[in-house]
Design a protein around this nucleic acid. Structure first.
Lengths: 138, 138
DNA sequence: TAATAAAATAGTAATAGTTACTAATATTTA
DNA sequence: TAAATATTAGTAACTATTACTATTTTATTA
């Protein structure tokens, strides 16, 4: 199956390139519709999957039940905010240390590892004011 | 909302206790039906979710699109086989090292970390026979 | 450039996993 | 035992995703 060029696919990739927030298929869909008003959701899914299979983008699964997509295919970790759901890149070196450790104790072939972090992002972290801090006797 | 005792819930928990292979809701359903022929799938889901919320069991998400459930709530890592889909416990110490490292470079509250490994389990690893090895000139 | 082959599309239907709803039942409390 | 309320079975609804199909686009070739 040889690839054929498609404006829709270009548009999907271009859109992803502009975003650092790992949009879902649905977000891609609503945005790309501004340039292609009758693009179908199926086309978006098909192309996201194709691009991910080609290694041109990355599919990011962070346990929220929805696939996210990332233009940045270099290895890096993600953080997902339990409150707002935002997926954020972490600036932290990726090592194969844990996988290496896992291989020691496992009788099979460990090909890779999936790791992400969760909690509250800086926007969703309650900001305790000085006076409140005082009254809490911190 | 105070809890009330339920035989179905007991049965679900008892079943989970007998298994080390992290069954899905559907597997729980088909098995518990042997003791409760008209238990409904909704009851299974509701109780699995409730038990997980109570911390009596653990919900395991390993990126295969289906939730698995684990009677063992002690912290441990999982391996998922890309071929047969089995979820296997790893006998490997759990440390907070990566999360600690992540906190250094992140401006928010990292509450936890999700890590699992994937590849081929020992059953699915191709076993190369001696003669085949010879002909492959290994 | 026109004809042909093949891939991609829009639109829609179907699927899987899970959650929500409701009337009836079971459990607990008084 | 009666009242209050959690739980259930059964079913409908929902969400994310994939599959299907007739039509359109893109690429190839004559």
């Amino acid at each position: 199956m040889n690839l054929k060029h498609s404006k829709q696919r270009d548009s999907i990739k271009e859109f992803l390139a502009t975003r650092k927030d790992h949009p879902t298929a649905d977000v891609v869909y609503t945005n790309v519709r501004q340039s292609f008003p009758n693009i179908s959701l199926g086309t978006v899914y098909r192309n996201l999957t194709l691009l991910a299979d080609l290694g041109e983008i990355a599919r990011v699964r962070v346990g929220d039940g929805v696939d996210h997509f990332d233009y940045d295919t270099s290895p890096h970790y993600h953080f997902i905010c339990k409150k707002c759901g935002n997926v954020i890149d972490l600036d932290m070196p990726v090592t194969g240390q844990m996988a290496a450790e896992a291989r020691e104790s496992f009788n099979g072939k460990i090909e890779g590892q999936m790791t992400y972090f969760y909690g509250l992002c800086s926007n969703c972290t309650p900001k305790i004011l000085y006076k409140e801090k005082e009254s809490l006797k911190l």
